[in-house]
């Protein structure tokens, strides 16, 4: 079940995108799934085994998120 990280702004999404890329962690920028938020903009999609590493990057990099969400593969 993939993990979606959502953000208050594009800047925060780009910030985590950059940190994940630098750390060599596989991820994708995707539109925010409707189940999570009505907001437009990006979510970062990760494999669940990368969630802990992503959370650590969020903390160390001071990235503001609106949470990590687990959704089905069809989301």
């Amino acid at each position: 079940m993939p993990v979606f990280v959502v953000f208050p702004s594009t800047h925060e999404a780009m910030s985590l995108d950059r940190l994940l890329t630098q750390a060599g962690i596989d991820h994708e920028l995707v539109p925010v799934p409707r189940e999570i938020s009505a907001s437009c903009g990006f979510a970062v999609r990760l494999r669940p085994e990368h969630e802990a590493a992503a959370r650590a990057l969020v903390d160390s990099g001071g990235v503001r998120t609106e949470g990590f969400h687990r959704l089905g593969p069809d989301a």
Binding site: H11, R18, L29, P31, F42
Partner: peptide
């Protein structure tokens, strides 16, 4: 359009703005 649309060209544009910032 950076950050508006969620596709690859939108992401690429958002990265450009991020890098400038």
């Amino acid at each position: 359009n950076p950050g508006r649309s969620g596709h690859r060209l939108s992401a690429a544009a958002a990265r450009v703005v991020f890098d400038a910032r």
